[in-house]
Design a protein around this nucleic acid. Structure first.
Lengths: 343, 343
DNA sequence: TGGAGAAGTGTTAACGCTCACAAGAGCTCC
DNA sequence: GGAGCTCTTGTGAGCGTTAACACTTCTCCA
């Protein structure tokens, strides 16, 4: 018996094997694979048949080596367990797939700049062609801006950093609409449970809230600050329940609103009869809170999709557009809000 | 001026550049990079200095080509927006990183077998060394079992498919404990809001619930079926609220329990005074439902981690262990449960 | 003092693919 | 009827790395 192909150990077929079986040169196989023109139909058929027969798969490393393109994009995210980041990731992945890219993810250990640099370096070492950073914190964004990286990069989050192309939600706008809605209902002012101070989203939502109050000539109460979690919303709620004349609260996200609702419930303050509550995000559960939560919807999936489009554009169009795309949030009215009692 | 390095267009440095700068051969650079023995300390230093100076990064495609190892693992997931899959993904990514692998994700378009095959093929084309499939549905799992794939593969989910190594949560056990707990509190029986019929997790939890009832000689009420969403839990809740003698409900997940709580609230049925409710998963918000939800915690992150360990073991140890690892869930007691009223 | 073996380094050949170019076949057009 | 096309296919040279092996210089002990 021959020496080659001994035992069960047969290596993966390569292009040359396909070529031999089809009776053509390896280059013709390559042409078929890459849809090059000027291949006679019957030749193409023979090649395809050989490919099927051998179950041949092109070696992506070899291709990447010579083309200098890995067909892979990287995504850096912080807490991909949260609904927002997870949805963005999914949006990014879907968009990447339909643009013909693979997606490699890596999560941040911590929020300092070093960690961001590490993550991006890791992706670069893997040979990604571009990177999307899901970077909602000031520290992350500024780290990204400082990043020494030769890789095209898009950030998705908030803020108006001009260094880096970015896709973001109109947080200020959304917060303004929510606050304005409450004021229009006759509430003298609106309290605010803000997110962490170092998140851009917090800052923007807080600013939108503040500006809306000022524009209406309403007093600006002191902010309660949470960390996005339901727990922190609950604690803020306990404090707010102590205040005598609160009639409306705008929470920087739905999870904190959930905690707030429970705190108010336990304190015997009825929502919306005594106090109106508005959240932000429109997580799928918000409609099933007690009572159903009025909130500001942002389309995370779309956010991810747009970020990826921007990256691909930069990658393929070559246009280093410093564009900032913005996505408008939209208010969703539910039962947690009512007109102020005119006492 | 010279012809090379004209203008700003300078290519990435390669190993040969480092070698030249350090005055050694490229092989010595390779040795330094890969921590090979028998390199004189001062040579190593010179090489490292050259690497730093040029900001050299090894080309992963070239390395992958020759070593036949991509250092990349693939993850297939279905709805990575849900808390469970998202947490698993995060657990997998972290574990992969510390084992020295990159992670490439792809999500399923739909739940049929073709879609699973497509996803795995896609990852294979990219050259992943192994795949983790987050496959909680019967269809997915059986598709995985049928999969024609030469790539090592681990499933994470539920069920007792023997074809494929798998990591799963003790769903039956957890459901049994939850049901038993309610029975112990004096409830005559426990109603159940199940998940989708084609999910293994649903099936196992339902079975655990049923067995516990039977073991206690309790009647087995008809199952209400949802789709994991709060909305479906709400609808099940509306139906359950109509039933006269319900005193305890076990929901197959926390989101449906949230919907159920609201339906009961609207129907004026007090939880836990009239009806006790138990969920499953222990999502972070469960502690802030009204009332706080008693539930069965499963550690998704750990699940992902274990799946990855299994895969790496198979990859590196070569042991094609057909092992099924199980993770025990744990009951978390909160206020949504009370002893039955002895009327 | 010589020579075996270890330590340290270099040379060459893959890995599997695409790109640039060459070259034959068949056609058109004056 | 042959110059000049286009269509179709093949040949050879890399891409940047690691693996295998060869070679030179030490070290150490008989």
């Amino acid at each position: 018996m021959g020496t080659e192909n001994a035992g069960t150990e047969q290596r993966q077929p390569v292009m040359a094997d396909v070529a031999k079986l089809a009776g053509v040169s390896h280059q013709t196989v390559s042409r078929v694979l890459n849809g090059a023109p000027h291949v006679r139909p019957d030749t193409r058929e023979r090649v395809l048949a050989a490919i099927r027969e051998l179950d041949y798969r092109p070696n992506s490393a070899a291709r990447a080596l010579v083309t200098r393109r890995s067909q892979t994009l990287g995504v850096v995210s912080f807490d991909s367990t949260l609904y927002g980041p997870a949805s963005m990731l999914e949006g990014i992945e879907r968009a990447a797939r339909s643009a013909g890219y693979f997606v490699s993810v890596t999560s941040l250990r911590s929020l300092d700049g070093r960690s961001v640099q590490e993550a991006v370096d890791r992706l670069r070492d893997q040979g990604v062609e571009g990177v999307v950073v899901i970077a909602p914190q000031t520290s992350t964004v500024s780290a990204v801006a400082r990043l020494s990286s030769s890789v095209p990069l898009v950030a998705v989050g908030s803020g108006n950093q001009t260094q880096v192309p970015m896709v973001s939600v109109g947080n200020r706008y959304g917060a303004g609409v929510a606050t304005g809605h409450l004021l229009d209902l006759g509430h003298r002012t609106v309290h605010h449970v803000a997110g962490p101070a170092n998140w851009l989203e917090s800052q923007d939502r807080e600013e939108g809230w503040r500006l809306a109050l000022q524009a209406a000539g309403a007093p600006v109460p002191e902010v309660e600050r949470g960390d996005w979690s339901a727990r922190s919303g609950y604690q803020a709620g306990l404090r707010i329940a102590e205040l005598p004349d609160v009639t409306a609260v705008f929470c920087a996200n739905d999870h904190m609103a959930l905690g707030l609702l429970r705190a108010l419930h336990e304190a015997g303050r009825s929502v919306p009869d005594e106090i109106s509550v508005v959240g932000f995000d429109d997580i799928p559960e918000a409609a099933y809170f007690i009572p159903p939560l009025t909130t500001v919807r942002q389309d995370f999936g779309e956010l991810g999709r747009r970020a990826l489009e921007l990256l691909v554009e930069e990658l393929e169009g070559g246009s280093t557009s410093r564009a900032h795309a913005q996505i408008s949030p939209e208010m969703v009215l539910r039962r947690s809000v009512a007109p102020a009692n005119r006492r």
